[in-house]
Design a protein around this nucleic acid. Structure first.
Length: 236
DNA sequence: CGGCTTTGACCGGCGC
DNA sequence: GCGCCGGTCAAAGCCG
């Protein structure tokens, strides 16, 4: 119930400036009404968007580029059982209308996704600015790897993203009825992690958050001999 | 038997 | 300082 196989090709340059003091998150909706195998995922997976950590200054354009990369990848490498019919890419990509200040912690990725409603007061459903600033003030020296997450409509928890993962933990998160699972890439010297959880509001939605860069190719790449060269770069 | 999952314990950050 | 909580560890069990 874990290992994955298939292809993954995402431009990694977007994340190279991550973990600056102030970063922002953005949600990029993918075109609706389309199947979309951004990570070579299964037919049943219907990613509806990506949460990306935008760069300090070039937020919207970076995110858009990122999403375009995803889209082009999907178009170029459709799974045999998928129809990747995109009604013309970029026009449907929304930019970062929800970006906000935040720090590196994963939970804030989730906050961004869920529009976090804190204590029922949801007029402003992103963490109050003041509290975010408080968080920011504290020096968070810990160096975090670049990260981003997918929001996917799926019956399957673990997306098939081309890498092999080993589960190392599971946790029930407060105020959610679904446990969060923690995975680590099984490759030696690869410290990439991902976590998988279901959206509290809509259990059909799976949120997959990746942290770090793979220092290797997808584990199934050998099977994918027909891969175009442009797509041979790693996930990160 | 090796690789993987499960799951309770542990740890550190953070808010009060 | 204390308690809560998320993330990780690691022992034990499972499975091919």
């Amino acid at each position: 119930m874990m290992s994955t196989t298939s292809q993954t090709n995402v431009n990694q340059s977007l994340f190279e400036e991550q973990d600056q003091i102030s970063t922002q998150m953005g949600f990029i909706p993918f075109p609706p009404n389309q199947t979309f195998p951004p990570l070579g995922c299964h037919q049943s997976l219907k990613p509806i968007g990506a949460i990306v950590p935008s760069l300090s200054s070039e937020t919207a354009s970076s995110a858009a580029n990122f999403a375009e990369t995803l889209l082009s990848t999907a178009i170029q490498r459709p799974r045999e059982d998928l129809t990747s019919s995109f009604g013309g890419g970029e026009g449907q990509l929304l930019s970062l209308n929800r970006s906000r200040v935040n720090s590196w912690a994963w939970e804030e990725v989730t906050d961004c996704l869920m529009g976090k409603r804190i204590g029922g007061d949801d007029n402003h459903h992103h963490l109050g600015v003041s509290s975010m600033k408080m968080k920011k003030v504290k020096a968070r020296r810990k160096v975090r790897e670049p990260r981003f997450c997918f929001k996917t409509m799926s019956d399957v928890d673990v997306l098939d993203d081309g890498y092999k993962w080993r589960k190392y933990g599971q946790k029930v998160v407060k105020n959610t009825q679904h446990p969060r699972s923690y995975y680590r890439c099984t490759q030696d010297n690869c410290r990439v992690k991902k976590r998988v959880e279901r959206l509290a509001e809509d259990p059909r939605m799976v949120i997959t958050t990746y942290e770090g860069r793979h220092a290797h190719s997808p584990s199934n790449e050998l099977e994918d001999s027909q891969s175009p060269s442009e797509l041979s770069n790693f996930f990160w």
